[in-house]
Structure formats: C-alpha cells, structure tokens
C-alpha cells in the first residue's frame, strides 16, 4: 500500500483502459493505448519510457488538459472524460498543479505575479493573495528577488517559481513533465529533493515524467514504464522501500 491515503482511502487517480488516438488522415497514431493504472493518494509516481512512448500524452490526460479517446480517468469521484470543458478547467484550477520542462513562466510578469496568476483565475480575494504567494514562495525557498522577471533568474530559480505557482492553489495532485530536463544535474537533484519534500509535508500526490531512471529510482515511490503507448510495467523503488522501513529516512532525503 502507498505511504498515505486520503481519509476516504480513495486513490488520487484511477485510470481505466484509457486510449488517446490521433488520426493522421488514413492512419491513426495510438499515443496512449489501453492503459490502466491506479495512483494512490500521496504517491510519488515516475513515468518512464523512450521518446514518443506516450508519457506526456498520458500526463496531459490525467491533468485534464486533454480528453481520452476511450476509457475513464476518475479523480475525486468524477470521471474526467465526462466533465464539461468548464468543469475540466475548474479541475485544473483547483485540484491540479502543473510543472513543465520549459518552466512556462509568463515572461512579462515578475515571479510574484506569476505565482499570483492561479489565484486570480480562482478569484481568491485580493487581500489574501499576497500571503498565499509568500507562503508558496517560502515553500520552494525563494524569498529574494521575487520582484524580478523570469529571464533574470537561473533555470533552477525559474523552476522553483513554477512549482510555487503550481502549489499556490493548494492542489491535491502535482503533475510534472520532465521538470529537470532543462537543468544541470545538481540543480535537477535539488528540484527533485524539493518535490519529495512537498510530497511528504503537504501530503501531495505527484506524477512526474522523466528520462532519468537513476533519479526516478532515488526520489519516486514507484516507476511506471511506457513503450509505444502501452504501460509496460510498474515497480516500487528502493526509495519507496526505505520510506516503508522508516519515515525518518524520507524527511532526511527531503532536505
């Protein structure tokens, strides 16, 4: 069983025979082909696989950015495939946080303003916003230079800002598509350490796409490997085993 579950014990995501096909004229591309997977609440899941195997497509389906051609994705008791566009937008706004390989901060806004953006979308009261932004920035250990624009900061700082932005609306699930892909290995490790820490302190479910198996084995609870749109295998990592043995170790890894 996963390290922690919600009060109701429901999994964070339940993926059932999900497919996502792209039709290219006559032929059709099966980017995701009949994948079934359960992500327990509080788990740190890593999606691995060669390029073009469908990792990003599956992540986007889970994050409510895309709709499956077939199958169901149930989160919080609701099937994402059946939600209206507006309900899906609310799901992305309130239940989900997203982090990308290329950070995707809005270049014309300061870090603070970037982090504030989801609060604007969620219509959070103005008076409350500054404190929420500050809280999120502190969590990713970015208190200085928050009035600067993204281009004036390092890649690691930008990714921390992106994580703060993903967290500011207090989501249940954090999706990260190759969050360390544009970073050097030391910075990448620091980011993964941060994610691991967020997972344990905020009781967050994290689904991360990555190419770096060795990092995934150190930081994730479980590895899911994809190939050609299909889910090839899932396996618990040693990191997971260590959390099972002693919770103290998790906190240690998080620092």
């Amino acid at each position: 069983m996963p390290p922690s579950t919600t009060a109701t014990g429901l999994p964070a995501l339940q993926i059932d025979h999900v497919s996502r096909h792209y039709s290219m004229g006559e032929s059709s591309i099966r980017a995701v082909d009949d994948v079934s997977l359960v992500v327990p609440a509080g788990e740190f899941l890593a999606l691995l696989g060669s390029s073009g195997s469908g990792k990003s497509t599956l992540l986007n389906l889970m994050a409510g950015l895309d709709r499956p051609t077939a199958g169901s994705i149930v989160s919080g008791g609701r099937n994402l495939a059946e939600l209206s566009p507006l309900e899906l937008a609310r799901y992305r706004r309130n239940t989900v946080g997203m982090v990308f390989q290329s950070f995707n901060l809005l270049p014309r806004m300061t870090l603070e303003e970037n982090v504030e953006l989801p609060l604007r979308l969620a219509e959070v009261e103005r008076g409350e916003r500054a404190a929420r932004v500050q809280e999120a920035l502190e969590r990713v250990r970015l208190a200085k230079r928050t009035g600067h624009r993204p281009s004036e900061l390092s890649g690691g700082e930008q990714q921390r800002t992106a994580i703060a932005r993903a967290l500011v609306n207090r989501p249940k699930i954090l999706f990260a598509d190759e969050p360390t892909g544009n970073l050097d290995s030391a910075t990448g490790e620091a980011i993964l350490t941060l994610l691991r820490e967020i997972q344990s302190t905020m009781d967050m479910t994290i689904v991360m796409v990555t190419h770096e198996r060795h990092l995934a084995e150190r930081f994730a609870d479980r590895l899911a490997t994809m190939g050609d749109g299909k889910l090839l295998s899932t396996a618990a990592t040693e990191a997971h085993a260590s959390t099972q043995v002693t919770t103290q170790a998790t906190t240690g890894a998080g620092q």
């Binding site: 994050a63 950015l65 566009p85 507006l86 937008a89 609310r90 799901y91 992305r92 706004r93 309130n94 989900v96 997203m98 995707n104 809005l106 953006l117 989801p118 979308l121 969620a122 932005r165 609306n169």
Partner: peptide, 9 residues
C-alpha cells in the same frame, strides 16, 4: 499556460 493553470475558455 493560462489554460493549464485553470483558465476556462
């Protein structure tokens, strides 16, 4: 990005 952050159409 706006849509990924939850902006509706």
């Amino acid at each position: 990005v706006l849509k990924a952050l939850g902006a509706a159409d």
